[in-house]
Write a protein that binds this DNA or RNA. Sequence first.
RNA 1: CGGGGCGUAGCUCAGCCUGGCUAGAGCGUCUGGUUUGGGACCAGAAGGUCGCAUGUUCGAAUCAUGUCGCCCCGACCA
Length: 578
Amino acid sequence: MRWSQTLIPTMKETPEGAEIPSHVLMLRAGMIHQLMAGAYTYLPLGYRALRKAEQIIRQEMDKAGAVEVHMPALTPIQLWEQTGRVEAFGDVLIKFDVRRQGKKVPMALGPTHEEIVTDLVKKFVSSYRQLPLTLYQIQTKFRNEERPRFGVLRTSEFLMKDAYSFDSTVEGLNANYDRMYAAYCTIFRRCGVDYLAVEAESGPIGGDASHEFMAIADNGEDSVLYDPKSGYAANQERAETGKRTVAKSTVEPKPLTKLHTPGVGSIEAVSKFLKCKPHQMLKTLIYTADDKPLAVLIRGDHEANENKIRRAVGAKKLALADAALVEAITGAPVGFAGPVGLKQPVPIWADDDVAGMANMIIGANEADQHYVGANLERDFQVEKFADLRNATAGDPSPRSDGKLELRHAIEIGHVFKLGTKYSEAMGAKFLDDKEQQHTIIMGCYGIGVNRILASLIETKSDANGVVWPMSIAPYEVIVSSVNAADAEVSAAADKLYGELQAAGVDTLYDDRDQRPGVKFKDADLIGIPLRVVVGGRGLKEGNLELKWRTKEAPEMIPLAGAAEAIAKLVAGERDRYR
RNA sequence: CGGGGCGUAGCUCAGCCUGGCUAGAGCGUCUGGUUUGGGACCAGAAGGUCGCAUGUUCGAAUCAUGUCGCCCCGACCA
């Protein structure tokens, strides 16, 4: 493609509002243009990169035995009502009515497609002989994000590859899951993304039923705990901690004293008011576990983990108590709960770290009152200690004697054993070889295609711009003529461009009559891996200049046979991402 | 949803506090010329409902109220 014939609106300055590298550079490199909050046009360069990522995904999905379909983005609301996800999604689901022949037809734009595929499979699959089956599509999803942000990372409209596996047995599901997991590893490697496969919350199935694929990046919205020693990695929701050996405090216990703390209920407010640190404070959270009340004690600087609590107490459902229940149990408005002097006796569970605390600051179960100097056993009893909080940096690893590190990450893929959640709700069944009817067992597997691009830019760009891997780069080679007004130069550049195209190299030909500085800056900014300069300086000696985007120094090659040599270099680089 | 910030030329911004002639600069664009290896130079030109509405005023980009848009931070943390 000739630069002069396409649309690559590069920018020297950073547009107002763009802050993180991927957003800034995608705008500056002329890859995208914002239409409104959370919706971007992909311009030629951005769209080519997106399609390269798509193509890699497609190849690997096909190799893994999945078959491509294309479902509508427009969906009837009834399907979502069948599984209760109209409520579950809430405002995130984009719903609307259209009028047809005087009647209102309610619809939604698909935020994902479990209901739609399950409906499809229900209609066409009825025998174990037709299973297993894995369907996938690469398609635009719509989610009304409360707050779209970070450029292309969180948008209301995005490209997703979503695959769904259908099996007659759990073993079949496990095999499919493993196949998808392996395919994902290949996909992200081929895209040149440094990723980590982390354990994620798996919902009703438990075990190793869910993994997220994370690109480690400072601007990522997700938090991952990682133990470099054992390779253990999990998202913050899921991460276990190793056994925390908590020594009992040897500090002299102080007397329990009530203090007036008017209007300060939160940990932050109390610590400010009493000039103490959050880790000296104790949070008392009132939950309902399967509708029975429960008090949970967590050190003030820690975060409760509801999944861990739910599993620890063996409940199916866990939710924070509402204000009325909190008041009934503690006798105080929300913000002043504590384990001493609860109005109603409820089981008290505590996180392991609470065992090492002394002279704690706790709510006094009375409005605007706190206790200081609260101590275990003397002042209150704990029924059971367990790991009930989010893991955090520095916690012991559950798999080695190392420590967990906290990293920010961008979620680029997710594999999940669904089980029968949707097939059950929608009645997708099959007959086995004994003529028995069973519910189809499902898995689902997603990849955020736009996020592959964004995470590459977040992690691989430099001060001069984007640095694409050969596999995703919108063009593999950029031919820059310097100077284009010189007939001899442009003739040589034209010829090289033609030969590279003929050799199957994706080539961008910067044929603009611009000064060299402009062309070099732009070439760096848009991140094409290999730059070829055709200029008077080299031509005199019968040479061309080659420069890799990742290298400082250029090298000269003879003009004769240049296209072949370049094609060879490109092929070699392509091989690294095969 | 809560809090904060910003809307002036295609882009980045000045002007606003303290209202007053034809609203400015740089970049980009267009014309002509000189240049040509890391975002050139000279001369000229085009390009603006100052986000929108209402109000105050002799007079509003500037003050007030409302509204819309965009960006950032935080969101069951007791």
